[in-house]
């Protein structure tokens, strides 16, 4: 599921009866939200500094100390080439974070633009975008990526780019749905009557009302992309060998499950934690924005 479900979740969440009672469910207890923020902050820190903060050089091999158990020197042990697992995890934060960030932001920008346009203008723009969405529904993104990457032999950035292209229609659909919901509202009608330009209405009047769901969706897209990128690395279709990357580490170290399970389990846990934290923060952001939003 991963990305597919994450993206659809939001589209489902665009209620046809948004004016209805707002259900109160605190997204998560306060301290969990704080934990998630702290965790993501640490991830961002490592993603920015790269291997600078790693205890050891993540690519230095020590072939006389392979698959070593955790010790004071190697807190999480070493892998099949004697490299420090902890340092590789830290160095791998970059590819685990930057790709999803680009995907989330890219599809946020393009998706909002297209979604607003489709919802507001309707007509040809709308049906074109809907056809694109239908196409994406027919063949889900992971399958396209498996074929493309398997055939072309993908590397990191092309994969990220394809994912942006694949995610945009899902984002656009969410924004379009939310926009359609705003269209019959009196304020839109009022703005039109007093002669506010379409562009102003779209961006200054409608968009702020669409923003909560769109921003929250971006967090979900991020969480989903973490999973998809890791899945591709796991299938050997993502980053080239040798690069520290969580998904790749999972794949490379899977044979070590019986000797040095930490080398394989640690990246697995990090992938789950990152995606979960982003989802929780997304939930939280949605609640905050829709409470404070100009509804």
């Amino acid at each position: 599921m991963s990305g597919v479900s994450a993206s659809t979740t939001m589209s489902e969440a665009v209620s046809t009866r948004g004016t209805g009672r707002r259900r109160r469910r605190r997204a998560a207890p306060q301290f969990i939200i704080v934990c998630c923020f702290v965790f993501i902050a640490v991830v961002v820190l490592f993603a920015v500094t790269g291997s600078l903060l790693a205890p050891q050089d993540p690519s230095v091999q020590n072939l006389s100390n392979i698959t070593a158990a955790p010790s004071a020197e190697h807190l999480l042990g070493t892998d099949a080439l004697g490299r420090d697992t902890l340092s590789r995890l830290i160095a791998g934060t970059g590819s685990a974070f930057v790709g999803p960030l680009v995907i989330a932001l890219g599809s946020f920008l393009i998706g909002n633009l297209l979604g607003l346009l489709a919802g507001y203008r309707g007509g040809r723009v709308d049906s074109l975008i809907m056809r694109w969405i239908d196409l994406m529904w027919a063949i889900p993104s992971l399958l396209i990526l498996v074929v493309v990457a398997g055939v072309v032999g993908a590397s990191y950035w092309p994969t990220v780019l394809i994912l942006v292209v694949l995610t945009v229609p899902l984002d656009a659909r969410v924004v379009r749905g939310a926009t359609l919901e705003q269209m019959p509202r009196p304020y839109v009608e009022a703005a039109k009557t007093v002669g506010v330009s379409d562009r102003r209405i779209m961006w200054l009047h409608i968009w702020p009302n669409v923003a909560p769901i769109s921003v929250a969706n971006t967090f979900l897209v991020f969480a989903g992309s973490v999973g998809i990128l890791a899945s591709l690395s796991f299938l050997g279709l993502g980053v080239p060998p040798g690069k520290p990357d969580w998904g790749l580490m999972l794949a490379e170290n899977q044979p070590l499950l019986f000797v040095q399970p930490l080398a394989c389990l640690a990246p697995a846990v990090l992938i789950i934690l990152t995606a979960t934290s982003m989802t929780v923060i997304g939930d939280w952001a949605y609640e905050r924005l829709s409470e404070e939003g100009p509804r």
């Binding site: 991963s2 994450a6 998560a28 394989c264 789950i272 979960t276 982003m278």
Partner: peptide, 22 residues
């Protein structure tokens, strides 16, 4: 349940598969 839902939604299928396998 709600907490598990968040974790479940955020766990990529292959990671779940490896953990269960292990």
């Amino acid at each position: 349940t709600t907490a598990s839902v968040v974790v479940g939604l955020s766990t990529p299928t292959f990671v779940a598969a490896i953990l269960l396998l292990y």
